[in-house]
C-alpha cells in the first residue's frame, strides 16, 4: 500500500467531530429552530458550551456587557457566529487527549492556529468579506494536516522535520517528497470527511498560494496573508519560521491598502495577546 493510500485510509480511523457540531448544523438549517433549542443543544456538551461562552465574552467581540447565558450568546452573536464557535471548540476538544510523540509542540500549534484565525478574520473584515466568521474557522483549521501528521504519522513526519530544519527545505516540498501529500492536502481530506462547509475546505487546501496561482479567492487570500502576518509577529508555525513572501494574486484579491496594514497588524497583535489562552481548559 503506498503512502498516500495509507494516509487516506487512516483518516477513516480518526475521531469524528463531537456530535454537537452535526446536531447544531442540522438545527441551524431547520426553519423552526429557536435560540432556546440551539442553546439547549450546545449545553448538552459542557466542555464546548463553556468555551463558547468564554469566546463570546472575549475581546474578539468586545461587548460592553457580559453575556451570561448560551441563549443570550445565540441571540446576540447570531447563528453563523455560534456555528463557528462550536466548530472551533469541537475541533480542539477532538484532539485534546492525543499526545505528540516527537518534538512537535502541540501548544505552539494551537497558539499559531488561533493567531491565524484572528489575523484572517481581521483581514476579512478589512477586506469587507461577507463571512468573516467562516474565514476565522478557515484560519483556525488551515494547518490541521500538520497535527494529523504529528499525531498519527510521527515516524515519517520526523523525517520531514529533519529536511526542513537541517536542509532548509520548504515544508510543502518536504511533505510531498516524504509523505506524498502536503499538510494542506491532508487537511482538505479531513475537512471533507467531517463535512465542513465548502468555503472552509477550500481555505484549508489552498492556503499555500504559489506564484503560479494567477488568482485566488478573497477568503484564501485572507488566510494566506493572516498566516504570513502571524509569522511576522513571531507567532510561528512548525516548519514555517520565516516570513513568506506575499504573492501579487493574494494582495490584489484581498483589496486592502498598504496604509491599512499598520492598524490591521496592531489590532491582530492586541487581540492575540488578550486571547492567547482562550482555547485552553
Amino acid at each position: 500500500m503506498d503512502k498516500i493510500e495509507r494516509i487516506m485510509n487512516s483518516l477513516d480511523k480518526l475521531p469524528t467531530l463531537p456530535t454537537i457540531y452535526t446536531k447544531l448544523s442540522r438545527l441551524l438549517h431547520a426553519p423552526d429552530s429557536t435560540a432556546r433549542m440551539i442553546s439547549d443543544a450546545i449545553a448538552e456538551d459542557q466542555v464546548v458550551a463553556a468555551k463558547v461562552l468564554k469566546l463570546a465574552n472575549s475581546s474578539f467581540y468586545g461587548f460592553a456587557k457580559r453575556i451570561g447565558t448560551l441563549q443570550h450568546a445565540v441571540v446576540i452573536l447570531g447563528m453563523n457566529e455560534i456555528k463557528t464557535l462550536v466548530l472551533a471548540t469541537s475541533v480542539v476538544k477532538t484532539f485534546h487527549d492525543y499526545k505528540s510523540g516527537h518534538t512537535f509542540d502541540v501548544q505552539e500549534f494551537w497558539e499559531h492556529s488561533l493567531a491565524c484565525a484572528t489575523a484572517s478574520r481581521v483581514l476579512a473584515e478589512a477586506g469587507r468579506l461577507s463571512s468573516p466568521e467562516e474565514v476565522f474557522a478557515g484560519g483556525l483549521l488551515h494547518d490541521i494536516g500538520k497535527l494529523i501528521y504529528a499525531l498519527f504519522f510521527s515516524e515519517d513526519f520526523a523525517c520531514v522535520m529533519e529536511e526542513v530544519e537541517n536542509n532548509e527545505m520548504p515544508i510543502i516540498t518536504a511533505e510531498k517528497k516524504i509523505m506524498g501529500l502536503s499538510h494542506a492536502d491532508v487537511g482538505r481530506a479531513l475537512a471533507v470527511k467531517w463535512n465542513l462547509p465548502e468555503g472552509i475546505v477550500k481555505m484549508i487546501s489552498g492556503h499555500h498560494v504559489s506564484e503560479k496561482n494567477t488568482d485566488c479567492t478573497k477568503e484564501i487570500a485572507a488566510v494566506n496573508l493572516g498566516n504570513t502576518l502571524c509569522i511576522a509577529l513571531g507567532m510561528v508555525s512548525w516548519g514555517e519560521r520565516k516570513v513568506p513572501c506575499i504573492h501579487d494574486s493574494v494582495w490584489r484579491s484581498l483589496g486592502i491598502k498598504i496604509s491599512d496594514l499598520e492598524f490591521i497588524i496592531m489590532r491582530i497583535n492586541s487581540l492575540c495577546k488578550e486571547n492567547s489562552s482562550i482555547l485552553e481548559n
Binding site: 509577529l233 513571531g234 519560521r241 520565516k242 516570513v243 513572501c245 506575499i246 498598504i258 496594514l261 497588524i265
Partner: peptide, 24 residues
Amino acid sequence: KKRFHRFEGDAVMEEIYRVVRKLV
C-alpha cells in the same frame, strides 16, 4: 532580520517589517 527574508523593493513587505519592528 532572521525572521524576514530579503524584501527590499517590495512595498508591502517593507511596510509589514516597519510596523512589526515598531511594535517589537
